[in-house]
């Protein structure tokens, strides 16, 4: 193990990790937003929009992110839509993640007892108020484990960003392997950095799930 080498290339990995995280978080934020909108549309059974959301979910869930990215990054410019690699990465991740987030929030919404909604209506609250003050907050609480699982899933998916020439962790590792033949060291750093990014989210998810199980059985 060449520790001097590892120390030398550490800044490269750090830079790559920051890029991975930044695009990942951008994508996740947009995915969450899209997911909430889609979930509410499905839950409220809004005509037309509901069908569109269902089609989107099927497309997004049944195609690989890598293929989505290839189309967005290499294909769309030929039709006149040119986006930077970074925006493509975030957009692809949001397109993929939106459907997974929608599923998480929809099942959260459906887990709220229907009578809660009626109870709010009978207090004179409108649909939007009911969603905002009564159903929404309860759904958010029950969706947290699924939401965190999606965050992990999406952060893992960022590993394909190197395919659209973003200098992320995978790109850096592959580059260094090609340059210096320090395969073991480069791969070890790759694993360590991914653990660094993913482990905290994963542990939080496990802790939340344990707590919710406990709280759930208590009431």
């Amino acid at each position: 193990m060449d520790f001097a080498y590892m120390k030398n290339v550490l800044p490269l990995y750090e830079k790559a990790a920051v890029l991975t995280l930044r695009i990942g978080l951008e994508g996740i934020i947009f995915a969450t937003f899209a997911g909430i909108v889609c979930a509410v549309i499905l839950y409220e059974k809004v005509p037309v929009l509901r069908q569109l959301v269902m089609v989107y979910i099927e497309i997004s869930r049944n195609t690989p992110l890598l293929v989505q990215l290839f189309f967005i990054y290499y294909g769309l410019p030929k039709a006149g839509i040119v986006l930077s690699a970074e925006i493509c990465g975030a957009a692809g991740l949001a397109f993929l993640g939106g459907s997974y987030m929608a599923e998480a929030f929809r099942s959260g919404l459906e887990n709220v007892a229907p009578l809660q909604r009626e109870s709010a209506y009978s207090l004179g609250m409108g649909k939007l108020q009911t969603m905002r003050y009564v159903v929404g907050p309860q759904a958010v609480a029950t969706s947290i484990p699924a939401f965190l699982a999606n965050v992990i899933f999406l952060l893992k998916e960022t590993s394909v960003f190197s395919a659209i020439s973003l200098m992320d962790l995978m790109f850096t590792a592959k580059d260094l392997i090609g340059l210096y033949y320090k395969t073991t060291e480069s791969l070890l750093l790759l694993v360590i950095f991914y653990l660094f990014i993913l482990l905290p989210v994963s542990l939080t998810g496990a802790a939340v799930e344990r707590r919710m199980k406990y709280a759930g059985s208590g009431s």
């Binding site: 007892a113 009626e118 207090l123």
Partner: peptide
């Protein structure tokens, strides 16, 4: 089945509709 809002305290349960509606 009462249908109190589980995420709100007793007082907030009572105050929600008078304030918002």
């Amino acid at each position: 089945s009462y249908e109190l809002f589980p995420h709100l305290s007793v007082l907030k349960n009572m105050m929600l509709a008078p304030l918002k509606v």
